[in-house]
Amino acid sequence: MRHNVEGRKLKRTASHRRALLRALTVSLLRHKRIRTTEAKAKEARRFAEAIITRAKNAYLAEQAGSATNIHARRVVARDINDAAILKELFSEIAQKVAGRPGGYTRVVKLGQRIGDGARVAILELVDYNTERDENAVRSRAKRMMSRAERVARSRAKQAELEAKQTPAVAQEEAPAEEAVIETTAAETAPVADAATEEQPTTEAPAAETAADGDQAKG
């Protein structure tokens, strides 16, 4: 059985899959962002991150004074079949990602492609897409605040409505001739005053007294 085996097969043989992931990774390092299917993007991410980490570690060691890490370059060169990209990876890209503990890439979903309905995504190097418009994103703090504000506003509005409604009801009922209704109104009025101060819980008893009065009348 194939339980808990990580990674996608992508409907390819092992060699075909390896070739695909290498090609995607080289493209990613060359162009910094590529558009592919969501599944391929997520697999290529795994593949590319390991390679970038190796280059980053070699770069950091070399910066710290050790000799050029030829072994690391050879290991990476198995997958990166392009001398220029290899050079860039161990210099510029490694430098850019040096401060990052992994997570050099980002997958952003784009929705479905028209031709075959495949889910498409963009895979990009995080450090090469630096423009960020803070106005276009609602920060978590902002969302939380607005939610609290919304609740407070709706509560205030409800309290205002109740304050407006309950005295009006009492006045309407008061002039009625039958004694039962008068008692209802008399009972409601003080409770209603309390309701304006204390909020919805007191509303329920008021409604009940009204119902009781009607029953007594019947």
Binding site: V108, L110, G111, I122, E131, R132, D133, A136, V137
Partner: peptide, 20 residues
Amino acid sequence: HTACNACGYYNGRVILNSTL
């Protein structure tokens, strides 16, 4: 969880532009 098709933004970043 998807970039906007109209403006190309996701989470405050330009994701889609003319190059892709």
